[in-house]
Amino acid sequence: MIIRVRRVAAACALGAALTACGAPSAPHASRPAPTASTAVTSRPPTLAPGPAGLTPVFKNGPRVDGKTVALTFDADMTADQGPRAAAGEHFDNPQLIATLRALKVPATVFMTGRWADEYPAEARDIGRDPRFEIANHSYSHYAFTGDCYGLPTVSRDRMKADVERAYTAFKKAGVPNAMPYFRFPGGCYDRQALKTLSAVGVTAVQWDVVSGDAFATDSDAVAQQVLEGVQPGSVVVMHCTRSAAPATEKAVRMIVPELRKKGYRFVKVSELIGAADRHR
């Protein structure tokens, strides 16, 4: 998902430059040691289906359940971008992942299956780090509606298969427990898309704070936009790529200490969804 925003969301040509995130196999000294709670796999929290069984949509956590905030990073790579990667374009940002680890910030990575196919070692490295969780961002990063920031469109009869193919790609890469959360490419969806994906059993995850980091070069502006937008329970959408979101890593280094000074605690999306479910 890429949206370029300064205060108000503005359309941008996503097909020209899409973002992604990743990290190399790095020393694990800064990672939390496995504990009984992390070693035992429990069922991730999800929201109940919406009216008529539609896929539920999650935007933010409770505003009254403490000062928590979830940073999310979209690992975008479309199905037809292999030649660009082969030519040297980097759809990953190892330094950003290293910074999140150094700052001890948990995060949720919404990854496309095509990206996992391109960077299986990075996908596995992130997926096996208990500080992070990997969620589904489709396989192809094609839009699930028409007129979605210039993205190609996946047909209705291929939507379910596209999501399931991403999970297959994660498993092939060695990601042990991909989460049952799905972010629509471009954030674009309609009732028909929600109906079509109901059989997959995912919770669709949107956001309430757009960082504006896509294509941005001013890290101060990105940080300011996030800091001004965050409320208790917020979900922040960001990106991690060296090619299309070069300011993100530096912005994160400014955002994290400032939010901590304000009393915020960083969590993964799963924790916010669990809190939202308890408040229903």
Results as ranks from 00 to 15, higher is better:
residue 141 H to M: 05
residue 200 V to I: 10
residue 173 A to Q: 02
residue 161 A to S: 11
residue 146 G to V: 07
residue 185 P to V: 02
residue 189 Y to C: 00
residue 152 P to F: 00
residue 129 D to Q: 08
residue 192 Q to C: 12
residue 201 G to L: 12
residue 138 S to D: 08
residue 165 R to G: 10
residue 123 A to S: 13
residue 138 S to G: 09
residue 210 V to W: 10
residue 178 A to W: 03
residue 142 Y to W: 13
residue 127 G to T: 03
residue 205 V to P: 04
residue 195 K to D: 13
residue 146 G to C: 08
residue 144 F to D: 02
residue 124 R to F: 07
residue 165 R to F: 09
residue 123 A to C: 10
residue 145 T to R: 02
residue 179 M to I: 07
residue 130 P to C: 11
residue 202 V to H: 08
residue 159 M to V: 06
residue 146 G to D: 13
residue 173 A to S: 07
residue 196 T to F: 11
residue 132 F to M: 09
residue 165 R to A: 14
residue 155 S to D: 12
residue 172 K to C: 10
residue 200 V to R: 05
residue 136 N to M: 08
residue 140 S to L: 05
residue 155 S to I: 09
residue 204 A to C: 07
residue 139 Y to D: 12
residue 170 F to K: 03
residue 128 R to W: 08
residue 158 R to C: 10
residue 209 V to N: 01
residue 149 Y to D: 14
residue 130 P to Q: 11
residue 207 W to H: 05
residue 160 K to V: 15
residue 178 A to M: 09
residue 161 A to R: 06
residue 139 Y to F: 14
residue 172 K to H: 14
residue 127 G to R: 00
residue 201 G to C: 12
residue 161 A to E: 12
residue 207 W to V: 02
residue 156 R to W: 12
residue 142 Y to F: 13
residue 146 G to L: 09
residue 131 R to D: 14
residue 170 F to L: 07
residue 207 W to N: 04
residue 201 G to T: 12
residue 179 M to K: 10
residue 140 S to A: 10
residue 193 A to C: 09
residue 167 Y to K: 04
residue 141 H to I: 04
residue 195 K to Q: 15
residue 173 A to L: 05
residue 186 G to S: 03
residue 135 A to C: 11
residue 133 E to N: 07
residue 195 K to N: 13
residue 154 V to G: 06
residue 197 L to G: 02
residue 198 S to N: 11
residue 208 D to S: 08
residue 196 T to R: 14
residue 199 A to S: 15
residue 200 V to Y: 06
residue 143 A to N: 02
residue 176 P to Q: 07
residue 198 S to L: 08
residue 161 A to Y: 06
residue 160 K to Q: 14
residue 196 T to A: 15
residue 140 S to T: 08
residue 198 S to P: 08
residue 173 A to T: 05
residue 184 F to W: 12
residue 175 V to D: 02
residue 180 P to D: 04
residue 124 R to S: 11
residue 167 Y to C: 05
residue 147 D to E: 13
residue 182 F to C: 01
residue 124 R to P: 06
residue 197 L to Y: 02
residue 182 F to V: 03
residue 171 K to Y: 12
residue 176 P to R: 06
residue 183 R to E: 04
residue 179 M to V: 08
residue 161 A to D: 13
residue 172 K to F: 10
